[in-house]
Amino acid sequence: MKQATRDIRILPGFNWVTLAFFLYLYLPLIILVVFSFNASRSATVWEGFSVDWYFKAFANDDIRRAAANSLIIATVSMVASTCIATMAALALARNRRIRRKPVFSGLIMLPLMMPEIVTAVATLTFFAAIGLSLGLGNIIIAHTVFCIPFAYLPIRARLQGMDESLETAAQDLYAGRWDTLRLITLPLLAPGILSGAMLAFIISIDDFIITLMVAEAGSTTLPIYIYSLVRLGITPEINAVSTVLLIISILFVGLSYRIGKKR
């Protein structure tokens, strides 16, 4: 008689649920991408392949302006938040006089858990209260702030895995503190910093709620512009822009992951 050798760790039905979940997650995205190549105006009925919508989107001045705004905001916020996150991580890890480091570290990461709408309203109120009106500057400041915890996470992780005696060794070999930072600490921290920067970039480029609150006229970003287009009806042009955003995000997340993994 044939003995059924079953792995008791395999549970019936679990595979199917998991598969359904993947479909539910990725099918809409796949459809979005596919219809960005549709030849007709319809975003639901397939009528042949074309890349016209991409050209149309790139030719659209409003989209170009929104995309430029998004890129400027994301780039500046990325640089600023990564610098601040690096300094904060080093200060918290290396300064022996700071007590209760976990509390500070927690305070830096708390915004990750805060409801974004609350942060958005708070930022708006705050900017209004101090009368801040710098156009894109307002958005950049807001983005820099909420990108810091995202940039901080991989940098801190990298720093925790770093051997402090390397910095001691550099000092022992006549390197002052700035030489030590430049030649030892930063190069060893670089994967964490790059990884954090890329996370900050994609978090900034797809932010909607906070941007919507603090954006003034003329500083529309891509997500906000897409939202305003959608309200007028979905066209493959939106699909095309969304696809470009999607690709940028995937690229950056992938890179961030690869770099973060590297020793």
């Binding site: 051997d163 390397l166 001691t168 060794a169 000092q171 022992d172 070999l173 006549y174 060893l188």
Partner: peptide, 20 residues
Amino acid sequence: LPPEKRPVNTVFQHYSLFPH
């Protein structure tokens, strides 16, 4: 004197070579 000003060098217990 800070360490970088002392004419003294150390061989560390776990070598501490710069990995990069």
